[in-house]
Each structure stands twice: as C-alpha cells, then as structure tokens.
Design a protein around this nucleic acid. Structure first.
Lengths: 64, 64
DNA sequence: CTCACTATGTATAATCT
DNA sequence: TAGATTATACATAGTGA
C-alpha cells in the first residue's frame, strides 16, 4: 500500500524502520480497537519495539 | 472500506457480527505479523470472540 | 453456514515541508 | 528530523452462490 509496494521482510534502514513501526503500530492499535467494538470481542495487544519499548492495547468489554 | 461505510459500534445482527469478526480477525493477525517482520518487533495478540473462543498470534524474533 | 467476488473505504510508502 | 500530504496498494462491506 502507499506509493510503492514493499516486500514483507525486515527493513534494513533504521530510520525508515522506526518510521514504519510508528505508523503501523498506530494502524494496528486502531484495527484492534475497531474489532473489539464492532464484534464485542475481548482483546489484548502487546508490542515491544526493537529498541525494547512497550506499547499495548486492551479492550474492556465488561469492566468500566 | 468495502462497498459501504460502517460506524464503529457493536454490530447488532449476530450473523453479520460473526462474519465481520472472522474477516477482521484475519486482517488484524496479518497486520500484526507484518509489523513484527518489517520492524523486527516482538508482539503478542490475544482475541476472545464474543462466544468465548480464543485466537492468538505471537511473533518469535529470537526463538525458533 | 462458508466461500468467492469486487466496488469502495482505509492504511500507508514515498514524498514534501 | 518529525509532522503533513498524497498517490497507491490493501482490507473489507455488501453481495451472490
């Protein structure tokens, strides 16, 4: 998607890899939230960047 | 996306909700796998359907 | 129900600032 | 370089078998 097509393999360039990580992480979190809401599902997503930082999302269907 | 636009809210029709769950779960898993590979990230995704079934994906960056 | 199709909405790679 | 833009590849809502 985007301007060009890319192969699904590790991005060698560190800067580009970081930019792609940030963009796709956001997109993945959004999709996860949508799935939880649309389909009334419970769901947890945990991501560690290659630099060791943690990002997560968890739905809360029944808990406030 | 798709033929029409939908609001992000619980799908009332049970059959349609199940179909959407199946489609989007697949898409989400694919995106998760791509993020793990492209950005060399470790990641886990756990989903419980509204009927209680479990689906999961976990990357394995260092373990075989 | 489950699978395939496809028109269309969305995510995003490349680019620009 | 981080944030905005934009053209394009991808995901998917509706449909039909």
């Amino acid at each position: 998607m985007g301007r060009g097509k890319i192969a699904i393999e590790r991005i060698d360039n560190a800067t580009n890899r970081q930019v792609t990580f940030s963009k796709r992480r956001g997109g993945l979190m959004k999709k996860a939230r949508e799935l939880a809401i649309l389909c009334d599902a419970d769901l947890a997503l945990i991501v560690f960047s290659s630099t060791g930082r943690l990002y997560d999302f968890a739905s809360s269907r029944s808990v406030s």
